[in-house]
């Protein structure tokens, strides 16, 4: 067999499948020039296909090895401090406007998610998992776990949000006549995190820098505001 038990029960399986699937996806994307498609999407489908086609392999067996890669999300989040410090000048010059913009974005985000989920009849688990959907994945997972959501479901929501953002953000903002780079960068970073921000790369360096700052600040403000705002929303709209 291609997947003998000795392989499946060793961390080698999860680590190798993750890295091979991801680099193969990167290769396919550069080979066929499918620009704009994050490698995470094809590689997720590949890993899922392996697990779904082999009923004898469980997700736990995969995660047994993949946890080593999953662990690095923590250090990667901490590493986001570097781009933040590199953009500190723009941040300082527009500090009060940026911070109030982020608070507006977070309040609008958490409230709109809560109201929409209630209107469309989402279950409490799904509602809580949707709350951090605009935050960059590692922080979103932490927030989701902290407020009682399902972190893996949050990841799915975060990724779908990012894909949607990467494809429509600039078109929507242009449609509404928004031209200021600081406004565009901040709104994109706050609504669709890193995936949406990747679409700013070929537009303007200022948009990219502001979006980077916005991702970090949205993470911080959502993790503070969401747990405080949720009980209030639950009282108003049970």
């Amino acid at each position: 067999m291609f997947f003998p038990d000795i392989l499946i029960n060793s961390p080698l399986f999860g680590i190798a499948l993750t890295i091979v699937a991801y680099s193969f996806s990167e290769f396919l994307i550069s080979r066929f020039e499918i620009n704009g498609l994050p490698p995470l999407i094809p590689s997720t489908l590949m890993c899922m296909a392996v697990l779904l086609l082999h009923p004898n392999i469980t997700y736990d067996q995969y995660f047994n090895g993949a946890v080593f890669i999953h662990f690095l999300l923590g250090p990667a989040t901490i590493a986001l401090a570097l781009p933040l410090i590199e953009n500190i000048k723009t941040l300082k010059e527009n500090l009060s406007i940026i911070v109030s913009g982020i608070i507006v974005a977070t309040l609008a985000g958490v409230t709109s998610i809560y109201v929409c989920s209630k209107i469309f009849g989402a279950s409490p688990d799904v509602l809580l998992s949707l709350i951090p959907k605009s935050v960059t994945t590692p922080i979103a997972m932490e927030i989701s776990a902290a407020i009682g959501g399902i972190p893996a479901l949050t990841v799915a929501c975060v990724i779908f949000t990012g894909m949607l953002g990467a494809s429509i953000n600039h078109k929507v903002l242009a449609l509404f006549g928004i031209k200021n780079d600081i406004a565009i960068g901040l709104a994109i970073g706050a609504s669709s995190h890193g995936l949406g921000t990747s679409a700013c790369a070929n537009k303007s360096p200022l948009q990219l820098a502001i979006a980077g700052v916005s991702i970090a600040l949205t993470g911080i403000s959502t993790s503070i505001i969401a747990p405080l705002l949720l009980p209030i929303l639950e009282k108003i709209m049970p």
Partner: peptide, 16 residues
Amino acid sequence: KMGMLFLPASVGIILY
């Protein structure tokens, strides 16, 4: 390479 670090969690979607 942050994208790759999300992979184990996003494969976890199959549980849900």
